[in-house]
């Protein structure tokens, strides 16, 4: 399996490389490091959101409320910044993570304690959180001139050629990678989605694991709330509308199984980057943004077909000679 995933990740990386090469033949400068860093920076928020989404999907759930969570949290910290310019940025970020985590915890509790299907819960909270953003702001905007320079500029500060926003994504990727592969919680995520019954018998609290997956997804969405508002220098009710679908698309393209239990951090990051490259390249080579949506959609379907085939191919090895062959391959 690691093999299929690895080859899949290499494949995805290859496709992205080919895309970049292709685009740069049409638009000189596309493949320059500076532009690539720009694309990565542009995709940072999607990467962070998709990693939270991945944790949730691994447990056979889905979080449709991430973009609404982002909008509410973004609005909240923007208003807080406007009202209390002297609050340090670190405090605002902690508040953003906290609000996001609480909204995620609400999803998690409804799923865990009341046993409501995640898709229904988060479809409900999607509307509620957006509504809350409206109630909080009264429908008005928070504009750049109301925000403090530190609030606005920190994510844009360049460090070694990449803005802090991009570095934040790098840090989150590393943290989530360690969490997925080196902690009990990460293993519990895979086990709970892979075979919930077996996980229960192995002493894993599946409901609780799922709850914390939602909390993680919520906290990351909250962080993205701040990042989004500061990046676009404006907060209003409809920011990131529909962005939850991008986060799901990134995970699916990256090879995360919607049935749970399968997926990797690297794959998800590549899935997000793939979408980022397309989003950035199409305007450069004069393709309408509407095509962009169609292309993203087609790629998602292709990725799902690919996933289904990869999962189907794994049969049991019963034939003796096949077993010997795989053994040789593995030892070679």
């Amino acid at each position: 399996m690691t093999r299929i995933l690895k080859s899949r990740e290499i494949l995805l990386f290859g496709i992205i490389a080919i895309l970049v090469a292709g685009f740069s033949s049409r638009a000189p400068g596309f493949a320059e490091p500076k532009n690539l860093a720009g694309i990565f920076n542009d995709t940072s928020i999607l990467i962070i959101l998709a990693l939270g989404q991945m944790a949730v999907i691994l447990t056979k759930s889905i979080d449709l409320s991430v973009a609404a969570n982002l909008a509410f949290t973004g609005m909240a910290v923007a208003m807080l910044n406007a009202a209390h310019p002297d609050l340090p940025l670190a405090v605002l970020i902690i508040i953003a993570l906290g609000i996001g985590a609480i909204l995620g915890a609400i999803n998690g509790l409804l799923v865990w304690k009341l046993g409501i299907p995640p898709i229904v819960v988060t479809l409900g909270t999607l509307t509620i959180y957006r509504g809350m953003a409206f109630v909080l702001s009264g429908g008005s905007w928070v504009n750049a001139h109301q925000m403090t320079p530190v609030f606005l500029n920190t994510p844009r500060t360049l460090f070694l050629g990449l803005p802090i926003l991009g570095w934040t994504a790098v840090a989150i990727v590393i943290i989530v990678y360690i969490m997925m592969n080196r902690t009990f919680f990460g293993r519990a995520l895979y086990a709970s989605g892979g075979n919930p019954t077996a996980a229960i018998y192995a002493g894993i609290d599946v409901g609780r694991t799922r709850f914390f997956a939602f909390v993680l997804s919520g906290a990351l969405a909250g962080l993205c709330g701040y990042l989004w508002v500061s990046r676009y220098a404006v907060a209003y009710v409809d920011i990131a509308a529909g962005f939850e679908l991008d986060s799901i698309a990134a995970t699916v393209i990256g090879g995360v199984s919607t049935l749970g239990g399968i997926g990797s951090v690297i794959g998800t990051v590549l899935g997000a980057l793939f979408l980022g490259v397309i989003k950035n390249a199409l305007p450069v080579i004069d393709i309408s943004p509407f095509w962009q949506m169609a292309i993203s959609g087609a790629v998602i379907i292709l990725a799902v077909i690919f996933n289904a085939r990869a999962e189907k191919r794994r049969g049991r090895i019963i034939l003796r000679d096949k077993a010997a062959k795989t053994y040789q391959e593995a030892t070679a």
Partner: peptide
């Protein structure tokens, strides 16, 4: 059906119920 997580590697399946013992502060 209830014994193993089919997608998981063998070693992770074997260690699954023992993780509480072999991990330290939540780290494997």
């Amino acid at each position: 059906r209830h014994g193993t997580v089919a997608q998981m590697p063998i070693f992770q399946n074997i260690s699954l119920p023992s993780l509480a013992k072999t991990s330290r502060a939540g780290f494997l």
